[in-house]
Amino acid sequence: MTKKYNEKAWHEYELGFMVSRPGCSAEYRTGDWRSQQPQTNKEKCIKCGVCYLVCPEGAIVLAADGTYDFDLEHCKGCGICATECWTGCISMVEEGE
Protein backbone atom coordinates (compact mmCIF):
# COMPACT_ATOMS: atom_id res chain seq x y z
CA MET A 1 0.00 0.00 0.00
CA THR A 2 1.42 3.36 -0.95
CA LYS A 3 1.89 5.84 1.85
CA LYS A 4 -0.17 8.99 1.99
CA TYR A 5 1.60 12.31 1.65
CA ASN A 6 1.40 12.86 5.40
CA GLU A 7 2.82 9.45 6.26
CA LYS A 8 6.02 9.47 4.25
CA ALA A 9 9.50 9.76 5.73
CA TRP A 10 11.57 12.77 4.70
CA HIS A 11 13.49 10.82 2.05
CA GLU A 12 10.41 9.43 0.34
CA TYR A 13 9.24 12.64 -1.32
CA GLU A 14 9.91 13.89 -4.81
CA LEU A 15 12.86 16.17 -5.49
CA GLY A 16 12.34 19.58 -3.92
CA PHE A 17 8.85 18.51 -2.76
CA MET A 18 7.52 19.20 -6.22
CA VAL A 19 4.20 17.82 -7.44
CA SER A 20 4.59 15.78 -10.60
CA ARG A 21 0.98 14.73 -11.13
CA PRO A 22 -0.52 17.49 -13.29
CA GLY A 23 -3.93 18.69 -12.25
CA CYS A 24 -4.14 16.30 -9.29
CA SER A 25 -6.07 18.89 -7.26
CA ALA A 26 -9.11 17.33 -8.90
CA GLU A 27 -8.79 14.60 -6.25
CA TYR A 28 -9.88 17.18 -3.71
CA ARG A 29 -13.63 17.46 -3.33
CA THR A 30 -14.64 21.09 -3.04
CA GLY A 31 -18.26 20.06 -3.54
CA ASP A 32 -18.48 19.69 0.24
CA TRP A 33 -18.30 23.46 0.59
CA ARG A 34 -21.65 23.96 -1.07
CA SER A 35 -24.82 25.09 0.64
CA GLN A 36 -26.79 25.50 -2.57
CA GLN A 37 -26.53 23.54 -5.78
CA PRO A 38 -27.40 24.42 -9.36
CA GLN A 39 -30.20 22.66 -11.15
CA THR A 40 -31.04 22.98 -14.83
CA ASN A 41 -34.43 22.98 -16.38
CA LYS A 42 -33.17 21.22 -19.47
CA GLU A 43 -36.27 22.08 -21.44
CA LYS A 44 -35.41 25.75 -21.23
CA CYS A 45 -31.68 25.21 -21.91
CA ILE A 46 -30.60 26.54 -25.31
CA LYS A 47 -27.21 24.77 -25.10
CA CYS A 48 -25.31 28.04 -25.43
CA GLY A 49 -22.50 27.09 -23.02
CA VAL A 50 -22.28 30.38 -21.16
CA CYS A 51 -22.52 28.55 -17.83
CA TYR A 52 -19.63 26.35 -18.86
CA LEU A 53 -17.50 29.33 -19.80
CA VAL A 54 -17.98 31.34 -16.60
CA CYS A 55 -17.55 28.59 -14.01
CA PRO A 56 -14.44 29.34 -11.89
CA GLU A 57 -14.14 25.66 -11.02
CA GLY A 58 -14.42 24.25 -14.52
CA ALA A 59 -17.17 22.15 -12.96
CA ILE A 60 -19.70 22.41 -15.77
CA VAL A 61 -19.33 19.72 -18.40
CA LEU A 62 -20.86 19.15 -21.79
CA ALA A 63 -23.44 16.37 -21.81
CA ALA A 64 -24.11 14.02 -24.74
CA ASP A 65 -27.27 15.90 -25.69
CA GLY A 66 -25.49 19.27 -25.93
CA THR A 67 -26.77 20.58 -22.61
CA TYR A 68 -24.51 20.88 -19.59
CA ASP A 69 -24.16 18.85 -16.44
CA PHE A 70 -22.69 19.87 -13.11
CA ASP A 71 -19.67 18.19 -11.61
CA LEU A 72 -21.00 18.23 -8.07
CA GLU A 73 -17.76 16.86 -6.65
CA HIS A 74 -16.17 20.22 -7.42
CA CYS A 75 -19.02 22.73 -7.76
CA LYS A 76 -18.78 25.10 -4.79
CA GLY A 77 -22.27 26.47 -5.35
CA CYS A 78 -21.24 30.06 -6.09
CA GLY A 79 -24.23 30.58 -8.35
CA ILE A 80 -22.44 32.46 -11.14
CA CYS A 81 -23.87 30.00 -13.68
CA ALA A 82 -27.43 30.71 -12.52
CA THR A 83 -26.86 34.47 -12.61
CA GLU A 84 -25.24 34.43 -16.04
CA CYS A 85 -27.54 31.95 -17.74
CA TRP A 86 -29.27 33.62 -20.68
CA THR A 87 -32.58 31.87 -20.34
CA GLY A 88 -32.69 31.57 -16.58
CA CYS A 89 -32.88 27.81 -16.83
CA ILE A 90 -30.39 27.30 -13.97
CA SER A 91 -31.63 27.81 -10.43
CA MET A 92 -29.83 27.44 -7.12
CA VAL A 93 -31.56 25.13 -4.69
CA GLU A 94 -30.71 24.35 -1.08
CA GLU A 95 -28.49 21.32 -0.61
CA GLY A 96 -30.41 18.19 0.27
CA GLU A 97 -33.71 19.41 -1.09
Binding site: N6, K8, A9, W10, Y13, F17, M18, V19, P22
Partner: peptide, 15 residues
Amino acid sequence: VSMGTVGVPEIYAEA
Protein backbone atom coordinates in the same frame (compact mmCIF):
# COMPACT_ATOMS: atom_id res chain seq x y z
CA VAL B 1 5.64 19.53 -12.74
CA SER B 2 4.67 22.11 -10.14
CA MET B 3 7.66 23.48 -8.24
CA GLY B 4 7.37 25.54 -5.08
CA THR B 5 3.97 24.38 -3.87
CA VAL B 6 2.57 25.26 -0.46
CA GLY B 7 4.40 23.48 2.39
CA VAL B 8 1.53 22.40 4.58
CA PRO B 9 2.36 21.52 8.23
CA GLU B 10 2.15 17.79 7.42
CA ILE B 11 5.24 18.03 5.19
CA TYR B 12 7.20 21.15 6.14
CA ALA B 13 9.35 19.44 8.78
CA GLU B 14 10.16 16.60 6.36
CA ALA B 15 11.10 19.14 3.70
